[in-house]
Design a binder for these strands. Sequence first.
DNA 1: GAGACTGAGTTCGAAATCCGAACTCAGTAG
DNA 2: CTACTGAGTTCGGATTTCGAACTCAGTCTC
Lengths: 147, 147
Amino acid sequence: MNQQGQPGSAIEETLRVVGDRWSILLVRAGLRGIRRFDDFCDDLGIARPVLTDRLRRLVKFGIFERVKYQDKPVRYEYRLTEAGLALSPALVALVRWSEEYSQDVSSETTLVHAPCGTELEQAFWCRSCQTTFGPNAVKGVGVNRES
Amino acid sequence: MNQQGQPGSAIEETLRVVGDRWSILLVRAGLRGIRRFDDFCDDLGIARPVLTDRLRRLVKFGIFERVKYQDKPVRYEYRLTEAGLALSPALVALVRWSEEYSQDVSSETTLVHAPCGTELEQAFWCRSCQTTFGPNAVKGVGVNRES
DNA sequence: GAGACTGAGTTCGAAATCCGAACTCAGTAG
DNA sequence: CTACTGAGTTCGGATTTCGAACTCAGTCTC
């Protein structure tokens, strides 16, 4: 799929799992506390067969886990794993982008620093330099073009 | 599409544009300096008709722009707009997640702080508190579950 | 103990997308 | 005149997606 033996297959792999219209929305729903099949279904308006498939895939890749939460009629629910929770920075970045650049929709500031209510910004942090910096100082996504 | 009149339609809108296997990869390619139709095609291994469609959509939503770069035979190329560049935090978050959690692939650390070479971390920044903080202190994605 | 209900899925056929391979079309180079 | 390039289009077949309806085990209500 990637012609030249370049690196970068990791995201391709990841996007194959998470790179569709629903998966990220499912993670977001998970973060909002939704756990049960029908609730995902109602909340997102996703078709049931698709939901079945996505959840199975997300479980397989360790983003959700299927947990029995009751015995009498055996019932399972889906919870975000640690790996799933770890997707939240990506989610936050997307939400922020949406608010800033997505046309049409009313862009209200919804993401804030909980303690103080200020709109948050996102930055990269270097623990050895003890500084924050922006995307231009990142090497590896590709800003180092070698064309 | 969203049953209850909840907020959060902004990301849905965004994911309808960017939430497929190729669009994010296209942005990443753009960041790596790729600009021309055939180069996108070769680099990603994407089918031509799909590439045509994706680029058109991304242009329509202001992520790429179609720029004439030569006259004799008129030729156009695709460049990331400011909005497109602004997707890089999301991309970085995804790459980082991939490196850390994606199974199988060799996870080499590819994202570093360019000046010093240290692996970067990602944080949220509050300009009024002048601090960085993690996802748990964010209000709005949903970490404030009310269950 | 018959009927309705619940949660978590399956099954179905129609509609939309995706794919690779081959084709187009304008302009250039030899 | 022929070959080549860049940027697409066209084609038919394969794969996904969809909504609506169905299943199935267990439970609750009378």
